[in-house]
């Protein structure tokens, strides 16, 4: 437990050491979110709804996506740092410490600044979208918040599944690149895919809907989708367990 506390404290201190990074991140966020919203906004010049979602609601999905991807990024940075050590042959010391390797994997090199900005933006959401939050029942809000974390969890599991191929190939696996490209389609609501394809994808790759499903529950009260997403989390977790175990057998440390 002390070890974990030490890891987190170390990363918080690190975040304070690079304060300028905060401003840089905010700038990048503002630019990329601004472009995305401008695009979504313009789509409504040609139609009054996209898959049953209004202008504000679709922008709300984009906003939720930013919160989810920022919180994901906080731990994702750690996953990448860990697997970099794996293919550079520096991971050995972490396997012999008295803490389970997953603590290093997810917390060891986490980026606290992303977590803080993600949390603050999440908390500010009612300020930017009053019309969505004013009508929401408390139960929907609780489900929304829970599903945002489910979204983060499925993203992290997916990134780890992709990255764990590093054990087999013993070289860099561009999981960050693949995930970055996937975020492009994450802004699309589930209803655009049609019922069967949408549910199928939700079960197999719930990451695609990591922000659409929490929003669907909050805005439209579609609890059944939330349950499908939880099932998706179960499937991803199972895949994670199987693939991590299978790939880890190929790990070759210095000790042989």
């Amino acid at each position: 437990m002390n070890y974990i506390r030490y890891l987190i404290a170390k990363n918080i201190r690190l975040a304070f050491a690079y304060r300028l990074e905060f401003i840089g991140m905010l700038l990048v966020l503002a630019v990329s979110y601004g472009f995305r919203v401008t695009y979504l906004n313009r789509l409504f010049a040609f139609t009054d709804n996209v898959g049953g979602w209004s202008r504000v609601e679709l922008i709300f999905i984009a906003y939720t996506l930013i919160v989810v991807s920022l919180i994901t990024d906080a731990f994702d940075t750690s996953i990448h740092a860990f697997f970099r050590k794996v293919y550079q042959g520096e991971s050995e010391p972490y396997f012999i410490r008295p803490v389970h390797i997953f603590h290093y994997l997810f917390l060891g090199w986490m980026k606290v600044s992303s977590l803080v900005i993600g949390g603050v933006l999440g908390a500010l959401s009612p300020l930017f979208f009053p019309e969505i939050w004013a009508n929401a029942e408390p139960f929907r809000i609780i489900c929304y918040i829970a599903l945002v974390f489910v979204g983060v969890a499925v993203n992290l599991l997916l990134i780890t599944i992709l990255s764990s191929l590093t054990f087999v190939f013993k070289r860099r696996v561009p999981s960050d690149f693949i995930f970055g490209e996937m975020t492009r389609i994450m802004v699309l609501p589930e209803s655009l895919y049609g019922k069967n394809v949408g549910r199928g994808l939700l079960l197999m790759v719930p990451s695609i809907f990591c922000s659409a499903i929490p929003s669907a529950v909050l805005v439209q009260g579609k609890y059944d989708l939330g349950i499908w997403m939880l099932a998706g989390l179960g499937v991803t977790a199972l895949l994670f367990k199987l693939i991590y175990q299978a790939t880890f057998r190929h790990y070759e440390g210095l000790g042989g």
Partner: peptide, 25 residues
């Protein structure tokens, strides 16, 4: 590997997004 992923993911996913959006228009 990276080139293959670049060829596949970086082109198919953005295109898929546009197709899905414009399909509903």
């Amino acid at each position: 590997t990276l080139l293959g992923i670049d060829y596949f993911f970086a082109t198919s996913l953005p295109l898929l997004m546009q197709i899905i959006i414009w399909w509903s228009m």
